[in-house]
Nucleic acid binder design. Sequence first.
DNA 1: GAGCACTGC
Length: 710
Amino acid sequence: MAQGRQFNNSTKTLKRNFSEHTQSSSYAKRQKLLKHKASLPIASVEKRLVEEVQKHDTLIIVGETGSGKTTQLPQFLYNAGFCGNGKLVGITQPRRVGTVSVAKRVAEECGVALGEKVGYSIRFEDVTSTSTRIKYMTDGLLLREALLDPYLSRYAVIIVDEVHERTVHTDVLLGLLKNVQNARSKSVNNDQQLEKESADQCLGFLKRCQRRSPLKLIIMSASLDARIFSQYFGGAKAVHIQGRQFPVDMFYTYHPPQYYLDASLTAILQIHLEEDPGDILIFLTGQEEIESLEKLVKDSLKQLPENNKKLIVVPIFSSLPSERQMRVFVPAPPGFRKVILATNIAETSVTIPGIKYVVDPGFVKARFYDPNKRLESLIVIPISKAQALQRSGRAGRDGPGKCFCLYPENEFEKLEESPKPEIKRCNLSNIILQLKALGVDDVVGFGFIEKPSRQSFVKSLEELILLGALTDEFKLSNPVGRQMACLPLDPIYSKALILSSEFNCLEEMLIAVSMLSVKSIFFTPSEKLEEVRTVNKCFESPEGDHLTLVNVYRASNEILEKWSGDSGLRTENHYKIFRKWCKKHFIDSRSLRHAHDIHSQLRRNVEQMGLRIASCGDDLLQFRRCLAASFFCNVALKQPDGIYRTLANDPMNELAVHIHPSSSIQGKPECVVFDELVETSKKYIRHTTMIDYLWLAELAPQRYALENQV
DNA sequence: GAGCACTGC
């Protein structure tokens, strides 16, 4: 009957908060919110949804966009008493911004301050308290919470949202939650049975299970196909909730265009000249394409009569500095139309209001990974049906819209249903390390919703053994493996941090690893290549990019410290100066601040581990030797013809590669370590630093000793 | 010599 009591309590809380708010100035705003809330499609099925959750341990909810599932369901469950005994309803999201905005919204609807009953937790920001009962968080964060609390015992309900996106974190989380739910219900039904099954490797980490309450799982997806999720959870019940979108008229071409950039230009001009007012959104594959089309559109406009020139072109893509990204939200002046040239950042991450027309050439740039060659590729491929629907939906958010697909309708039928899940296109080393730390010994047997290839497992297990994270028996090593799993980094970076303590350069390595962890902080408009190079000359290290990154970070730190004065307090004004400095050096200030945040978090981590923090000062040899000792899987040697060749166990997997043109490395050193190998127009190694080949046998004998003996 | 979709701990 605890649930009934909780129900009464919660209504009282709501009433009290509500009466407080009637006196406040936000009364009108709140009335509007509540009216909107009541009009959502999900509102009419509250009772039924709550009953379904009570009846089933796992429920799949398919809600189209605009159904209100993300904001309303947690409130329904709270009001129905699922948060008894201080338990939480947790809701995971794949992105940080989405997590914060939805939590703010729900707190407003509940009439509470953010961080009280409703809160959120993302990396670097925990806005929760002991009174928090509805907690929004990123899926990656819940995964890390599981390392500390394997049963996730604080949660009565966990809602995994946006599962159709199939990010690595979501996929791993689903497998993990399935195990946790299993173990928690077993512990309720029969403790002895669990004892017997503790030999079960997947549940090994739940051996010390005590009496616990069962875990309710709710899987929420926007895609129409709930079957795979339902099957995965043993035929779990699926409920559909109607969405609220305006109709979008679809148009197709008769033939596939030869050049879709030209076809895009034609489509934009045609819409601009013939259709009613309303902004246009076009999906392209990358910065280069966006910049060319921007130029094409602007050139064409010049030839139009004066009254037809009222078209504003706004680009948006990930590496564009955040201030310039914000321009897509600025409404076009009266009488003008806005055309937004976007990558798939506008598919999910950024929602732009006022779009009436979508132009979709039907392509996307996607990343693939070859575990044998350790090669990542960025390839332009056709989109999936799910992506096509998502893109067209962007035209129907504020009113009826139109979507112009630059391919024939029969081509749509040939598209894949949904994109290939990320877990099948990435390096598994980090995931395997996390699973091992969670006590999942048999990672190949882990219940993935879709299992990655055997070769991916083999290669990543090999790498983890070489790094010393796993023993030859595939067990997590102590202390190195455990320490590595604690750090929120890719295994090679974790290894570099741990080793750098011995090489007396942990200060430098903390910076290098933080900088490598954020997307490239430099933004280079294609027409300003030379200018960027000149202004940043002062940071460049001829020995390699890792030291260059350290130089940039230290220079930015000086700016921050110089202006923070004795008090150590940084005011808005200091950040203004910081941002100005960034702009001068073509640096995205938000990325750089992110690197600073990561740096302080990692610093705390290594202090807790008791690692000795020291600087190598001018003895940069130590730093490079440490890089060699940790990045020994990523080595390239210069060939007689001047082209580099990666080193691999099997010569079949060695590749001819080029040092990325952005590198600061000087001359053509015989041997380099690199951070990543990405194929675009060529196979490039990025972030390279020169080392001495002879160091490898000494510093990485587990990989190079044999070669040396030959 | 010449460039890179997105997300996350």
